[in-house]
């Protein structure tokens, strides 16, 4: 299989992951005005534009956390269709009908947008299943995600010791994965 080549603008992705203020400022100054233009030209306000820009960056950040992620196009070509998709979704939700939006960029990376859509749907499913867990299960999973030590978690949630907390976490995670796998939508998504 042909090896994907990282685009020279991958430094934006590295900067996001490292929370580099220099890159942060550049992304904001260079790209936000364009996204604001996209949204405000299409029935949105500045607050909408800010939300869209932020949500798109969250999507990109989460994608970039995966070790196999490689940016293969200019950063803006990746950011723009995601913003467009997010805004289109919000508009459709507002109007409850199909919406098309005025587009002044002549490119849409269909492959990228498709993976973003799938990923967003999949993540929504995980969150939905997570919400079905009991409060204590949600708490322990979140604390482990936050890289808290098991001893600390045991103290916080009132378990007798580290071992009990560890077992509890295992059970909760197992339950979450079971809920995800049992959902018919999951098999269609993978």
């Amino acid at each position: 299989m042909e090896q994907k080549k990282a685009h020279k603008e991958s430094f934006y992705i590295e900067g996001m992951l490292k929370d580099d203020p220099f890159i942060g400022r550049e992304i904001y100054d260079k790209f936000y005005p364009k996204i604001e233009r996209l949204v405000t030209l299409n029935s949105g306000g500045k607050t909408d534009a800010r939300d869209v820009f932020q949500d798109a960056l969250v999507v990109i950040y989460k994608k970039a956390l995966k070790p196999d992620f490689i940016l293969t196009c200019p950063f803006y070509n990746f950011l723009y269709p995601i913003c467009k998709y997010i805004w289109l979704k919000k508009l459709t939700k507002k109007s409850r009908s199909e919406v098309t939006i005025q587009d002044d960029a002549g490119f849409i990376d269909e492959a990228n947008i498709e993976t973003v859509i799938h990923e967003t749907e999949r993540h929504r499913l995980y969150r939905e299943k997570f919400a079905q867990l009991g409060e204590k299960c949600q708490a322990i999973i979140n604390l482990v995600f936050e890289k808290k030590k098991m001893r600390e978690i045991a103290e916080l949630l009132g378990y007798n010791n580290e071992k009990t907390a560890k077992q509890q976490h295992y059970k909760c995670k197992q339950k979450l994965i079971k809920l995800v796998r049992e959902d018919v939508r999951f098999s269609e998504m993978i």
């Binding site: 932020q54 999949r122 997570f130 999973i141 995600f145």
Partner: peptide, 12 residues
Amino acid sequence: LHRDIEIAMLDK
């Protein structure tokens, strides 16, 4: 799947 769930749970 574990990684994907972890990323999905990450609050902005």
